[in-house]
Write a protein that binds this DNA or RNA. Structure first.
Length: 968
RNA sequence: GCGGGGGUAGCCGAGCUGGACAAAGGCGCAGGACUUAAGAUCCUGUUCCGCAGGGAUACGUGGGUUCAAAUCCCACCCCCCGCACCA
């Protein structure tokens, strides 16, 4: 990562400074970004505010850059554009970071030293990192730096509206939101499992867990099943597969582990036997748990219990694979379907030379798998994989495989009573419910893997009994959500259907937590609103944030926001209640009314199933339809050299380094051009270098034409080649505007960068360097403008060099250039196309025949051939061609048509995209006469057009637009 | 398993409302021009065959529809993402 010399740093900073000084991106209702913008035409774009726990990298930058490109393009289109930004601080991660730093966690401190060093001189780093023991300091530091980074990226943001999500103004706003939701009856309370540390006495999130960011810990619901001992107490087994209860043959206990008897108070007292670990976990999940005496596992071996479904008696047997720290430490055995159970039984038979006297255990098969030939699945797979010991790690794999097959393709058989004949995937939950109703089963939560906090204390699952939720299940709400989505635009389009699905899935979502930064939950101040739930409609706050700054926080009451956002109540009453002048109130309301709704939200697909879904649903619930968001665009992620960027790979490039390492315009260009929204951008140094060269060449091209003495070409001196270049340019311009509008920024960029450059290069060869300089001058203004959303700095610079009289204004405030339709000349383009194909044909002949040309003879098609073609060009059906050409019937004609049909795709539909030609007539001879010099120059020999000399009778092979050639 | 995306030349990646497609663009590679040289830049080439502009074989695999398929249909194989409550 060596900084390669780019000379644009000064230019970039200069224009960023001037934009800022002239405040051209500060958006005012009805005023437009500095100049123009009519009142009715506004465009409000948002990109999610960044989370301020650390520096952003070039992957994040892609999304913001695309957002900025869209904002800038909309300005060119004449919209009054609002593009604001704020900072996300709420939630647990920042708090966790501050705690770790306060505790002196070496790893976290080292990481933050790295982060801070991106921005600060070495001698200041320690001091700053030390200050991070305060969460607010973390947020403040990074919010400030990220804002600087964004400015340095040239984003056209109205910074006056900036806020962060822990400031009082925002708290008030979020409270208001929750009151609205509460009024709708969707804020509810209930039980909820969470990850928890007993030692710390608090819930733990992903960021508190050792390795939690890379290896997620989720909560798994086990089913407990009670097996009655003769003394009336229960051995309580836990399982992930309650449907296999019908095939139970025995219980497993680990004889070397300590179990405890637990008194469970419910309808009546019960006594449960579970492992010691499980008992502790249970006490955090259920109320009325009392731990009594400890018992060695071995004590139960050989005892008999009654299984709860059919009341069969089954033995308790010893097994070493039973882990007391998973589930209840008691396992029921289904040797027909569980490889562990099967192997443990086999083990036992072998070691003891047979099972204890009087106990016969045969696997009970209860699941049939469609289209498979398993006799006993567990046995078969163990044999096939050669697993013989219960210590074999591959048992896990075997279990997974059997489970997958049985879950999706398996059907319960006749042993399973009323559940027989139904697929496991469909019946599993029913069996679970059935067992629970009969009071033989319960729920036990377990973590998906063993986990400890970063501090080293054990993570378990606890159940909160008064968790607050947002209930998205309400039918009226889903209906509104679907309606809203169907009225929106999504790009890429496929995400629209996906969003409908998400809305269907949405159910209960916990919306408050006991810890973390954020807004106090208004209905229970002990809770804090969870950070995805507090960032759902905050775009509305952007419209007025800068105005709220002038008001005391206390005035931001429910009726204040009701009035501003919903138009409820009247100004006088609200003014009276809040102490805010009616005038101010109405100005604020007017500003909101002007800007809202959010016309476009641009972000990345990982937000679909959470943030964006809540964003849409909350708008649906709180705002009337005319304030619902207009569209959502999403760009995929950015990877580096084919691999995901991550801290652990050490391949992260901070956004802050972009200007120094690559140059901002180059980065923006790369993001725009490397991939469409729907595809991953691969950041490859090699490709970046290549793009840099191209980009520099373009800049040079412009510079060349600004040189003194270079004048644009006048219309009366246009040659064929001039007209060709202009036709190409305006055609591309027209296309690229359409592409921008459709968010196909990549295509627009490729069109105006690469392809236009290629055209220019071709023009230069056909014409001259001097003339190229002049013609570029003809299109330069329009060209710079259309490129400016992507590479605003360099465009601004050149544009000002070009227009010294425009020192006071900016290309960023220009309008889309006019498309000079009259210059888009198909004939001129066809002629050139015709010529290049002739040149290529001649080249190929020279190559294949290994000739050095003495003289080249070109013969164009005779008039009658054109007549024939004209007659048959629109004839769809082959059979009718004969009829169409009946005016000329002879062998020569037939031969010609055969050849022509093969070579010319006459019937291509006229509607096909441009460039693909359909039938077109040219005066070939005139074109060739005109370009004879060029051909002679190209091949370094005489060229004769339609001469009489034709020694090999080539002329007869000529086809319209494909002349015959003879080389001497 | 369900839902979504995808499998195209040495690589990345367009095309995929069927027809100038041997397949844009880029990278890489080879040759040439320029240069004292390197770099940069610009040309040319980059499946195979061909001493006349042509032909053959190609777009995950196998079938099918069509005058014509990378593009449409069917089946199969493989890869990626999501199936949540985590910012």
């Amino acid at each position: 990562m060596v900084a390669v010399n780019n000379n644009y740093g000064d230019i970039e900073e200069k224009w960023q400074r001037r934009w800022h000084e002239a405040r051209i991106f500060d958006a005012e209702p009805g005023v437009g970004g500095g100049r123009g913008g009519d009142r009715g035409k506004k465009f409000f774009i948002t990109v999610p505010y960044p989370y301020t726990s650390g520096p952003l990298h070039i992957g994040h930058g892609r999304t913001y850059t695309i957002g900025d490109i869209i904002a800038r393009f909309k300005r060119l289109e004449g919209y009054n554009v609002l593009f604001p930004m704020a900072f996300h601080v709420t939630g647990t991660p920042i708090l966790a970071i501050a705690d770790s730093i306060a505790k002196g966690d070496a790893e976290v401190v080292a990481r933050y030293r790295d982060y801070v060093s991106i921005y600060e001189r070495e001698e200041r780093v320690d001091e700053i990192v030390n200050s991070f023991s305060d969460a607010e300091a973390v947020a403040k530091f990074f919010a400030g730096r990220i804002a600087e980074d964004f400015k340095r990226m040239g984003y056209s943001i109205d910074w006056r509206r900036k806020f962060n999500t822990t400031e009082p103004m925002y708290n008030r706003f979020v409270e208001w939101q929750f009151k609205k939701l509460y009024d709708k009856g969707v804020i509810k309370k209930g039980k909820y499992p969470i990850t928890y540390s007993i030692e710390d006495g608090s819930p733990v999130g992903e960021d508190d867990i050792e390795g939690g960011d890379t290896d997620k810990v989720s909560i798994i619901e086990h089913t407990t099943i009670k097996f009655k001992l003769r003394d009336g107490s229960f051995l309580v087994a836990s399982t992930l597969r309650p449907e296999t209860i019908f095939g139970v043959t025995n219980l497993w206990i680990n004889p070397d582990v300590r179990y405890v008897k637990v008194k469970v108070t419910g309808d009546g007292d019960e006594f449960w036997i579970v492992s010691k670990d499980a008992a502790e976990k249970l006490s955090y999940q259920k109320s009325g748990i009392e731990i009594l005496e400890e018992i060695e596992g071995g004590y139960f071996v050989g005892k008999v219990v009654e299984e709860p479904v059919a009341g069969r008696e089954v033995p308790v047997l010893p097994a070493s694979f039973v882990d007391p720290d998973v589930g209840t430490g008691v396992v029921y055995s289904v040797p027909a379907h569980a490889p562990y159970d099967y192997i443990a039984l086999e083990d036992l038979k072998r070691k003891r030379g047979g099972l204890e006297s009087g106990i016969e255990i045969e696997p009970i098969k209860i699941i049939e798998i469609e289209g498979s030939d398993y006799e006993l699945p567990a046995k078969d797979i163990c044999l096939r994989m050669g697993i013989e010991s219960q210590e074999d790690p591959r048992l896990e794999e075997a279990t997974q495989q059997i489970y997958k097959e049985e879950f999706y393709r398996g059907v319960l058989n006749d042993r399973c009573g009323e559940f027989a004949g139904i697929k496991i995937a469909e019946i599993k939950d029913e069996v679970k419910d059935w067992l629970r109703e009969r009071n033989v089963a319960g729920i036990f939560y377990e973590t998906s893997r063993k986990a400890v906090t970063r501090g080293g204390s054990k993570v378990i699952v606890a159940v909160l009994h008064d968790q607050w939720f947002i209930d998205y299940k309400a039918e009226w709400w889903k209906e509104l959500g679907h309606k809203l989505v169907s009225e929106m635009t999504f790009y890429p389009d496929r995400y629209k259907a996906y969003m409908h699905d998400i809305i269907d899935w949405l159910a209960l979502r916990p919306c408050a937590r006991k810890r973390g930064l954020g807004t106090r939950f208004p209905f229970d101040r002990a809770w804090v609103i969870e950070s995805l739930s507090d960032s759902t409609i905050y775009m509305a706050l952007y419209t007025i944030a800068h105005l709220l700054r002038a008001l005391p926080v206390e005035s931001l009451t429910e009726s204040f926001f009701d009035y501003v956002f919903l138009g409820r109540g009247d100004a006088a009453t609200v003014a009276n209640e809040t102490g805010v002048d009616t005038e101010v109130l109405d100005k604020i309301r007017a500003e909101f009314e002007y800007w809202y709704p959010n016309d476009l939200r641009h972000t990345a697909p990982p937000h679909l199933s959470n943030h964006l879904a809540f964003f849409l649903m909350h708008h649906a619930a709180i705002f009337p339809p005319n304030k619902w968001p207009g569209s959502i665009t999403l760009n995929e992620l950015l990877i580096r050299e084919g691999r995901k960027m991550s801290k652990s790979k050490g391949n992260v490039i901070p956004l802050a380094k972009v200007s120094e390492l690559y140059g901002v315009d180059l980065y923006r260009l790369y993001c725009a051009i490397n991939a469409d929204f729907g595809a991953v951008v691969n950041w490859r140094e090699q490709d970046v270098d290549a793009l840099r060269r191209k980009f520099n060449a373009l800049v040079e091209l412009f510079e060349d034409s600004i040189d003194a003495g270079v004048e644009e070409l006048k219309e009366d001196e246009f040659t064929h080649m001039d007209r060709w270049l202009l036709a190409r340019f305006y055609r591309r311009l027209r296309d690229s505007i359409e592409q921008y509008r459709a968010f196909r920024i990549r295509e627009a960029g490729i069109n105006m960068f690469f392809e236009m450059m290629n055209d220019i290069r071709y023009y230069e060869q056909r014409a001259s360097v001097a003339r190229r300089k002049r013609i570029v001058r003809n299109v330069m203004d329009a060209w710079l403008i259309i490129l400016s959303p992507i590479t605003p700095h360099i465009c601004e610079e050149i544009w000002h060099k070009l227009h010294e009289n425009k020192a006071k204004t900016f290309i960023s405030l220009e309008r889309l250039p006019a498309i000079k339709e009259e210059l888009i000349d198909e004939r001129v383009e066809r002629e050139e196309e015709y010529l290049t194909s002739l040149v290529n044909d001649i080249k190929e002949i020279l190559h294949v025949a290994r000739l050095k040309p003495g003289k080249i003879y070109v013969y164009t098609a005779e008039k009658w051939k054109w007549d024939v073609l004209r007659a048959i060009k629109d004839v769809e059906d082959r059979d009718k061609i004969r009829e169409a050409m009946k005016f000329r019937k002879d062998k020569t004609t037939a031969e010609f048509v055969k050849r022509a049909m093969k070579i010319l795709p006459l019937k291509k539909k006229a509607s096909s995209k441009e460039g693909a030609s359909s039938y077109f007539e040219l005066d070939e001879e005139a074109v060739l006469e005109r370009e004879r010099e060029y051909l002679m120059h190209e091949f370094g020999c005489e060229v004769e057009i339609n001469g009489d000399y034709d020694p090999e009778n080539k002329r007869r092979l000529a086809i319209p637009l494909k002349p015959a050639i003879y080389v001497d």
